[in-house]
Amino acid sequence: MSDALDTGREVLRTEAAALRTLADAMPADFDAVVDLIAAATGRVIVTGIGKSGHIARKIAATLASTGTRALFVHPAEASHGDLGMIGDGDVVLAISNSGETTELRDIVAHTRRFGVPLVGLSSREGSTLMQTADHRLTLPHLPEACGIGMVPTTSTTLTLGMGDALAVALLRRRNFRAEDFSVFHPGGKLGAQMARVSQIMHRDGLPLVAADTPMSEALLTMTSGGFGIAAVVDGGDLLGVITDGDLRRNMVGLLDRHARDVATRDPVTAAPDMLAASALAVMNERKINVLVVCEGRAPVGILHIHDLLRAGVA
């Protein structure tokens, strides 16, 4: 086994142990901070510099994507005008492992001057930041995983974990759902999976045939529609669907029959507001390639597996 592999495992085990320590000894103010942020009428202003700044940006992004309005403000830029981004109703989350970061001085002073709630996130309970803050998220002071005690590794992992804990506690407090999440994630694979059937389905040129349509005509509808099925309707409601499998099962005397005689009755359907990913799961479970989309019993669209592929869902 290589020295590099041993080192990698040692680092991960050290950081994992640190997270377990934090989970077993959560900061006493955690509940109060969640209450404070949940009740805030403004935004969470997350700030920090250096490696803490990088983690602060990620925490702000995670909060914002899960329903908590948040913004990263660089402490150096704050001293040159960006303090104006902090206003009434905001909560400041200041991150500093040592709690003595001089670059945070002006933001901290601004919160004291204008009565903006300040939450300190640090491993030093007795530091200037933590003594000044209204609420303290104190992290356990544990050795860095670098082995020389200088490279932010364990400390940044703990800070990131605390940020995730806050974000998830807040999203559950707000009953934040997958549907809400999709609003902030319209792009990429995740956005595609959060899309609704109504956003992907075909609305025009639906392969609909009446129940008493001769199969000679129903076959033309199946082949011309390009979906490989015909949806059989009776009085505007879906009665059944005709697929290639139905044709094979009814080859004897097929052209002497009517659509209602060949159709599979009460087929599985999709609703327009169904998640596209859920529709894909239905297709996979039933081993089918097409779903008729219905509002109530009335067909309003067709969803093909190729549509899901093009949209990036499958």
Rank of each mutant, 00 (worst) to 15 (best):
M1T: 11
A4C: 07
L5R: 15
R13L: 10
M26V: 11
M26D: 08
M26L: 13
F30I: 08
A38Y: 03
A39S: 12
A40I: 10
A40P: 00
T41C: 07
I45Y: 05
I49R: 12
R57G: 01
K58D: 01
A61P: 06
T62R: 08
G67V: 00
P75G: 02
A76D: 06
A78L: 05
D82N: 01
M85R: 15
D88L: 11
V92L: 05
L93W: 14
A94K: 04
S96V: 03
G99T: 02
G99M: 10
G99V: 13
E103M: 08
D106W: 09
A109Q: 11
L118I: 06
L118F: 10
G120Q: 02
L121Q: 13
S123G: 09
E125Q: 10
T132P: 03
T132F: 05
A133W: 05
S155N: 04
T159N: 09
L166Q: 00
L171T: 06
S182E: 14
S182D: 12
G188K: 14
G188H: 15
G191D: 05
R196Y: 09
S198L: 12
Q199D: 12
Q199K: 13
Q199G: 06
L206E: 06
D212W: 12
A218P: 01
T223R: 15
A231D: 04
V232F: 06
V232T: 13
D237L: 10
D237V: 12
L238A: 02
D246L: 08
V252E: 13
D261Q: 14
A263H: 10
P272G: 07
M283G: 05
E285I: 09
R286S: 05
I288K: 10
N289F: 12
E295Y: 15
L303S: 03
L308I: 04
R310D: 08
G312N: 06
A314G: 09
